[in-house]
Simulated assay, not measured.
Amino acid sequence: MCIAVFVWQSHPLYPFLLFLNRDEYHNRATEPLRWWEDGETVGGRDLAGGGTWLGCTRHGRIAFLTNFKETSSFPDAKSRGDLPLRYLQSRKSPTEFAEEIQEEVSMYNGFNLVVAHVLSKSMVYITNRPRHGDKDKLVTQVSPGIHVLSNDSLDSPWPKYLRLREGFKRLLSNNEGGEFPVKAMVEEVMTDTVKDQEPELPHVFTPETEYQISSIFVDLLIPAGRFGTRSISALSIKTHGEVCFYERHLEQGDSWKEHTEHFVIPNRSIV
C-alpha cells in the first residue's frame, strides 16, 4: 500500500522534501512523470481514473494522496485521484480547498490527502476516515517536522512507518542540513522489503495479505493480478525555489526507468 515520508518547514535547505511509493496493480493504465497539457503542472497520471497521486505546479502548489486501508469499498464512488488534480488546478489556498470539499468527502472511498502551497507556507491534511469517527477532524493543519503518511491516519505508528521515518531521519542527520542524498534514500530505504511479523500487523486484511504488504516496497501476486510498488518519487523544493521532481517507475516487462524534471518557482524566495 502507498507510503510517503516528508519534511515540512523544518530543514535549513529544503522547506519541502518528499519521498513516495505508489502501490497499484501492475496492469492499471498509468502515465509516468511528465508536464501536463496546461504547461503548469508536473506529475504522473492514473489513466484509468484520470487523476493523480502526486503533483506539483510551477507556482509551488503540491498535492499527494494515499488510499485508506479498509475491507470494503463503494464501486460507484468518485475517483480519489481527482482530488489532488482539482487542488493543483485551483486558485484556492489549502485551507479554502479543504473547506470546499468537506461536504462531498462521503462520495469517495477512504482517502488521505495532503495539499500545500510552499509560498504561503501552508499545508493541510484531509481525510474522510478521521480517528474515532470525529467529524471535526476531517482537516488538520500539518505542523513543521517529519511526517509519514501510509494507509491509516497521518503519522499512525505502524512498523513500516517507523522504519521509513528512521531511515529518512538517519540520512537527514548524516548530511547535517546539506544536500540530501536522493538516490541513497531510494536505493536503501524506499526499496526496503523487510516485512512485519504477525503480532505487529494491523489485522485489517487476511494475515497473509497483511504480511505481504507490510514492507515499504511491495511486490505480490494475488488473484486479481500482480500488485505492488509501481513508482518511487522524490520531490524536493529548496529555499531559493529550485524544484527537483524525480521518478523511478516500472514499465512493461519489469524494467525500471528514471526521469527527472527541474524548474524554479519564479520571482521570489520561499523562505
Rank of each mutant, 00 (worst) to 15 (best):
F168V: 13
G177R: 15
T52L: 07
S106P: 06
K92S: 11
V114Y: 11
H262V: 04
V271M: 05
F205H: 14
T260S: 10
F6P: 01
Y87I: 03
V271P: 12
W35L: 03
F97K: 02
P130I: 04
A98Y: 13
G133Y: 12
K169S: 15
T66V: 03
R22K: 08
E179H: 12
F168D: 14
H59Q: 10
D219Q: 07
H11V: 12
K160S: 06
K238P: 08
H147Y: 13
V148F: 09
N128L: 00
R163D: 08
P94L: 00
D196A: 09
Q9D: 15
R91N: 14
L221N: 08
K78Q: 11
G81T: 06
R268K: 13
K257Q: 05
G177N: 14
F217T: 11
S269E: 13
Y246Q: 10
A77W: 10
R129Y: 08
V218G: 09
K238M: 02
F111M: 08
L235S: 07
I237L: 00
S214W: 14
E100C: 00
G60P: 12
L162M: 14
F19H: 12
R170P: 13
D254P: 10
N174E: 15
E96A: 10
L164H: 11
S255F: 02
D196C: 06
L85K: 07
R226H: 14
Y246I: 02
F16G: 00
L154C: 06
H240D: 14
N175C: 00
T41L: 05
M123A: 06
S214F: 11
F217A: 03
S233G: 00
R58F: 13
E261L: 04
V243F: 11
R80G: 12
K257M: 00
S173P: 10
L20E: 06
G50T: 15
E103R: 06
K135R: 05
Q102L: 03
S93T: 10
I146T: 02
S120C: 00
D192G: 12
H147A: 03
I146M: 01
D196E: 14
G253Y: 04
V118P: 10
V115R: 02
E188S: 11
F19K: 07
H132P: 02
Q102N: 13
T206Y: 15
Y25R: 05
H132E: 07
V7Q: 14
E188F: 03
S79W: 15
L17P: 13
L83W: 04
D76T: 14
K257L: 03
L201V: 12
H259L: 00
F227Y: 15
K135P: 04
E70H: 10
P75N: 09
L33K: 03
P207H: 04
R45C: 06
K78F: 11
N112G: 07
L47G: 13
V142N: 12
L149Y: 08
F180H: 08
N67W: 11
D38S: 09
P266C: 09
R80P: 12
H26C: 10
A98V: 05
T206H: 14
R230Q: 15
T95W: 05
I237Q: 02
E166L: 01
K183H: 15
I101Q: 04
L13Q: 13
A29E: 14
V204N: 09
Y108F: 06
P130V: 05
W36I: 09
N267V: 04
N174G: 10
R163H: 08
R165D: 06
V115S: 01
R22A: 01
T191K: 07
V148I: 13
Y87S: 00
E40Y: 09
H240E: 11
R86F: 05
W158C: 01
